[in-house]
Design a protein around this nucleic acid. Structure first.
Lengths: 325, 325
DNA sequence: CTGTTAGCGCTTTCAC
DNA sequence: GTGAAAGCGCTAACAG
């Protein structure tokens, strides 16, 4: 079913149908006839033809890298909320932690003439930045630093620093930190460095702290903590880079001490304020980020970038809230 | 940058460039010249022009309705895993529980000539089915019943029945059930009916059971349970329609009884086997579904549908595993 | 093996 | 207000 067929059925030109669809000059009478023809035929206009012609898709591509589920869904909610109100649509792609895959997805987005790309939880592959720039497609990176590109992220270093400072640890305490693996600077290096710096402030030296690295799943957190607890060292505190890891840590503590609040068991802290974790164990020290806000801001910046292609890149750092201490 | 420009730069015809991109007959020499020209110009072919011409986008639209996060991400992982290996791409849209929005998204997918639609966690709007059929776009519904359309879902009734039977309740026990609101038959009616039927089998009559309805968030589960516990009735068991609701219920129990395993506190069961919940509280009775498998099956059926447009709709019901009893 | 050519369905001047 | 006509960038015959 095409433009032209609808036009013939309504006894008008294809240009009139186009005007009907896009709100151009048109007499009421023809408008009605066209509406009837569309209703009758179930006509669905071809976005591809329109995009080919206009070179605008009115669509923003969102690339989601698999990390914290609650963070991801929160950010996406925010993005969607903002764009749904505007005239832009979104097209989400979900990729694993694989650079090849990410590049491939990004290319297919570019091929579809999307007007902008929001990259969530993952820094762009260096080689890809080149393509973005060449294609003159605005990019907003969410959750990570990004050289040469706009970004929205949380102050992970500051949050971790504050968290460490407020744990109530004393200089003689044995503290362990479970790091999140991978090339995610925000979850990884920023939080770890901030945490260690915070501990230092309260008199705990960096090399007194046992740092272990885990993946992103509950099971990864369990394994890392399990290994830690199997040693003879007794820990006073085990801090985790994400709440998901903390959930695994809790499981490990349960395995070794029977219950989480056993007096001999190390205390735990998380990062990210997962609603399920919080509800179930009660407030353990963690950091709360407003992911939806983050998504909204990213969308906002994208719109600004779209309106004024010449503006400089913008970098926004959002705050945090320490909870459960 | 277009086909033609690349062709001129390489000293060949635009058809040759097209062949290069799609693997047609081409001499090694021209192949090399074209590759060089593409590299030099950073040429990105226009998917819209190709789709317009070929009427095939090699893309499957996935509509995600916001429900259980872990279920959603699991299913999406499965879908992506399967399609990534095939020649199809996916385009994910994330919609709230709003029929208007869902219809709008679905239309935009149709406008883009996607080859098929996978609808996750949500039954299609009746009016939309009409459009699908007219557009001859194959649809696979995941997680819900679907009249006239292919579907993949879990045996929620059976799982709830089994769960109820294996809770170890006695006929004199006071049991409450917290239902998931909304028009989701799978989460709602199927689980509730199965659970009540299972209780009946072990001698607990339906009208002895207090049924309350909650939304899909932890907070919703908390409120519903809180209200329940504020009455004078003492419950032996509170069963929840999802693990997210169960997390809220745990919070409420903690509020009323101090701790989850207080002897006076009701016991709890969930549904869905959320990894965080499970790790943190230890195995509470729940049902484990293989969401990724579900996504893979949905993708598989979609491919079959795509290969043979005439085949009948297919309906697959996946099993479950009772855990934590 | 390779180039020429004719559209895919739409929007957008440009005349009327 | 309205229609005719020219392409957007690509692929798929068709000739060579």
């Amino acid at each position: 079913m095409t433009n032209r067929e609808v036009a013939e059925l309504a006894g008008v030109s294809s240009a009139a149908v186009s005007r009907y669809l896009n709100g151009g000059y048109l007499s009421e009478e023809k408008r009605a006839r066209i509406a009837a023809a569309i209703e009758e035929t179930g006509y669905v206009p071809s976005a591809n033809a329109r995009i080919l012609r206009t070179k605008k898709s009115d669509t923003i591509g969102v690339i989601l890298t698999k990390t914290d589920e609650s963070a991801m869904t929160g950010v996406v909610s925010g993005i969607e909320k903002y764009f749904f109100a505007s005239d832009y649509g979104t097209s989400i792609a979900y990729v694993g932690d694989d650079t090849k895959e990410q590049s491939k997805i990004m290319r297919s987005l570019l091929e579809r003439q999307i007007d902008g790309i929001i990259l969530v939880s993952s820094a762009p592959i260096p080689g890809d930045v080149d393509l973005y720039l060449r294609a003159r497609v605005p990019v907003v990176v969410v959750g990570q630093h990004a050289h040469d590109l706009s970004s929205v992220r949380f102050d992970n270093f500051g949050a971790a620093y504050d968290l460490a400072s407020s744990l109530g640890c004393t200089p003689d305490n044995r503290v362990a930190y479970i790091d999140a693996a991978g090339h995610y600077r925000s979850f990884g290096a920023d939080r770890r460095k901030g945490f260690l710096a915070g501990l230092e402030r309260i008199g705990i030296d960096q090399d007194q702290v046992s740092v272990r690295t885990a993946g992103f799943t509950v099971e990864d957190g369990f394994r890392a903590t399990d290994e830690l607890l199997s040693k003879k060292t007794e820990f006073d505190y085990i801090a985790c880079a994400t709440d998901t890891i903390a959930a695994g840590a809790i499981k490990a503590v349960r395995k070794h001490f029977g219950r989480v609040d056993s007096p001999r068991a190390p205390r735990l802290s998380g990062f990210g304020n997962d609603p399920i974790l919080q509800a179930v164990v009660g407030p353990i020290p963690s950091v709360s980020f407003d992911y939806e806000e983050c998504g909204i801001k990213a969308a906002e910046i994208m719109i600004d970038l779209l309106k004024d292609r010449l503006s400089n890149t913008r970098s926004l750092v959002l705050g945090y809230q320490i909870v459960g201490v």
